[in-house]
């Protein structure tokens, strides 16, 4: 995979700190499964984090703690033997979804019921049980379609899974992530030849309780 657009350093730090809203963490993690370059940067940030975290003074364990651990380990090793291996059918189409996304989505890509939110634009929300932290969704946009110019209310990241689009920041193809600062307006145009499927996450801005992706507020009239 030839990746040109990577994660912002600030996102790398927040991800390694476990301090990203869950939907954004999911898109970042999906990019990392394609991108050894960003994964190496995350490892560095984790090294920074553990140096900060392990600076805490150790606290002695209670007398029974080791025993409890080994009781739990017994239960764990019993289930190791009995747990059936997880099998996922790996069709060509499925392989564009990293496993953690596939698991959260719950249905194969081919069986998604896309919700039409504008002409040539389908959307599929993915429920992480983290509505208060933000939204995670897949978007499928028709080849050649021009999206309305828009900005983003809070942090938003977009990972291209298939197809490509172009905006003023360049061309975004499979594996590329748009991790942009909030206030920049842009107008993506999906490249001709193939539909574009993206995984998008947005953080719920502090000031909005009920949040819809701002991109489509004018389109769906909310």
């Amino acid at each position: 995979m030839n990746i040109h657009h990577h994660l912002d350093d600030a996102t790398i730090v927040a991800y390694a700190a476990g301090a990203l809203p869950a939907p954004i963490a999911m898109v970042v993690s999906a990019h990392l499964s394609f991108c050894p370059h960003c994964l190496a940067r995350v490892r560095k940030a984790e090294a920074i984090g553990s140096a900060v975290m392990e600076d805490e003074a150790p606290v002695s364990l209670s007398a029974g703690c080791m025993n409890n651990l080994f009781e739990r380990l017994e239960a764990e090793t019993r289930s190791e033997v009995t747990a059936p291996a997880l099998t996922l059918s790996e069709t060509q189409e499925e392989s564009i979804l990293p496993p953690q996304v596939r698991k959260a989505l719950g249905v194969p890509l081919s069986e998604i019921k896309w919700k039409r939110i504008a002409k040539g634009v389908g959307m599929k929300m993915i429920d992480l049980g983290a509505e208060d932290e933000g939204k995670l969704y897949l978007m499928k946009i028709e080849a050649g379609r021009v999206l309305p110019e828009h900005g983003h209310g809070g942090s938003e990241v977009t990972l291209v899974l298939s197809g490509s689009y172009t905006d003023k920041f360049g061309q975004f193809g499979p594996g590329d992530i748009a991790d942009l600062d909030d206030h920049e307006d842009h107008q993506p145009i999906v490249d001709k030849g193939a539909d574009c499927i993206c995984l998008v996450a947005s953080e719920t801005p502090a000031k909005f309780k009920d949040f819809l992706p701002r991109l489509f507020q004018p389109v769906i009239g909310i």
């Binding site: 869950a22 963490a25 993690s29 990392l32 499964s33 050894p36 994964l39 959260a104 992480l128 983290a130």
Partner: peptide
């Protein structure tokens, strides 16, 4: 701390990769 209703946070971030394959 988060007790997400859907997935665990660690399901998102602990990638099941035997090696990172970095240079």
């Amino acid at each position: 701390a988060r007790r997400l209703k859907g997935v665990q946070f660690s399901d998102i971030t602990e990638l099941e990769q035997p090696s990172d394959d970095v240079g």
